[in-house]
């Protein structure tokens, strides 16, 4: 961490990476900030607190073709997509890196590993960038995160105003860091500056206490609170689509004549057909079941299954919910209703 990069060198650093890897990084598109592949160093924007949509799409895209087929050919002539290039995901914030660690066990390491997610994960080196500022909706510390956290990073850039302190964490990271080593400058004061910045930012986070919430949620399934809360929900999918940990998907076949493709798309527990089964039965038919499921998943089910929180406190849903149905409010409400 006692090496730094001057901010005015950042575009050159990123271009040196992009010469060998596909660079995925945040770019500005009017009022939105989105992670895009194949960007040039000069277009990368790190001014926003965070991207409009989380960068989970780099591993779990909103839609992807799983394979193509032709029903007229022997064995349907199934063709799988190519693996794609080695990639560097740059500019991901600590909360979103933590989110990847929290959804990894859904796709990797279980009896049914997910080829698509795992391949992209293995082929990607992650360069995290610590937060320069926090929004009033940020509450990552609630789930053990920090605006300067490096969990999940192969290389970590710590924002220190006009420079980044650089920490190379893994071997994978070292291979990428070698590409820009000529831009690194010694700065023995950097670690102390990072520590001061960490303290300053942590003090600005929204204080949200989840102590005991899991235990309350364990017994809260039938609580009338969910019905009252769900009245205002519109059942749109904003919260789930911009969320860094939501990972539900749907698989559909799209065919024209004999040619078809199997497509995986993001799904949302807010959707009408999310729990629709053959025969027409829907196990979560109304706002009540849908809203309860979202918060049970965030604050209980994910913990039950993986002992990991289903929320990382990025605050996106609090900001963008059309009706201000705010998870931090739910957390404090739940403690009161038990």
């Amino acid at each position: 961490m006692n090496k730094i990069i001057k901010k005015d060198q950042l575009a050159a650093v990123l271009d040196s990476i992009a010469a060998k890897y596909q660079l995925i990084a945040p770019v500005q598109d009017e009022s939105t900030v989105l992670f895009k592949p194949g960007v040039a160093g000069k277009d990368v924007v790190l001014d926003a607190v965070n991207s409009t949509v989380s960068p989970k799409g780099a591993f779990f895209p909103q839609w992807e073709t799983m394979y193509i087929y032709n029903t007229a050919e022997a064995d349907f002539a199934i063709k799988y997509p190519e693996e794609g290039p080695d990639r560097v995901l740059f500019g991901i914030r600590p909360c979103d890196m933590m989110a990847l660690l929290h959804i990894d066990p859904v796709f990797i390491g279980s009896k049914f590993g997910d080829y698509y997610y795992e391949t992209k994960r293995n082929k990607t080196t992650i360069i995290g960038v610590s937060c320069a500022k926090v929004a009033h909706t940020c509450f990552c510390s609630t789930f053990g995160g920090s605006p300067t956290g490096n969990k999940g990073a192969d290389i970590m850039f710590y924002d220190l105003g006009d420079k980044y302190a650089v920490e190379v964490i893994t071997d994978k990271g070292k291979a990428v860091a070698d590409l820009f080593s000529k831009f690194l400058v010694d700065d023995t004061g950097a670690p102390a500056e990072v520590e001061a910045k960490a303290k300053e930012l942590a003090s600005l986070l929204k204080p949200v206490d989840v102590t005991g919430v899991k235990e309350i949620m364990d017994g809260a399934f039938e609580n009338p609170y969910w019905k009252e809360l769900s009245r205002k929900c519109l059942n749109c999918g904003v919260c789930t689509f911009i969320c860094p940990t939501c990972h539900c998907f749907d698989v559909v076949d799209e065919a024209y004549m004999c040619d078809g493709q199997r497509v995986r798309c993001w799904d949302t527990c807010m959707a009408k057909d999310f729990n629709l089964a053959a025969g027409g039965h829907n196990t979560r038919p109304t706002k009540l079941e849908k809203v309860r499921n979202r918060f049970m998943h965030k604050l209980k089910y994910h913990l039950d299954r993986y002992n990991l929180a289903g929320c990382v406190g990025c605050g996106r849903c609090s900001q963008k919910c059309p009706v201000n149905l705010d998870i931090t409010q739910v957390i404090s409400d739940v403690k009161a209703v038990k």
Binding site: D29, G237, F241
Partner: peptide, 23 residues
């Protein structure tokens, strides 16, 4: 840029079909 979250549809008072073509 659209992520098809359906917020525009679900907030809309004119969108009152019992079954929506997009569902």
């Amino acid at each position: 840029r659209c992520i098809r979250c359906n917020a525009c549809r679900n907030v809309c008072s004119a969108c009152n079909c019992r079954e929506c073509v997009f569902d």
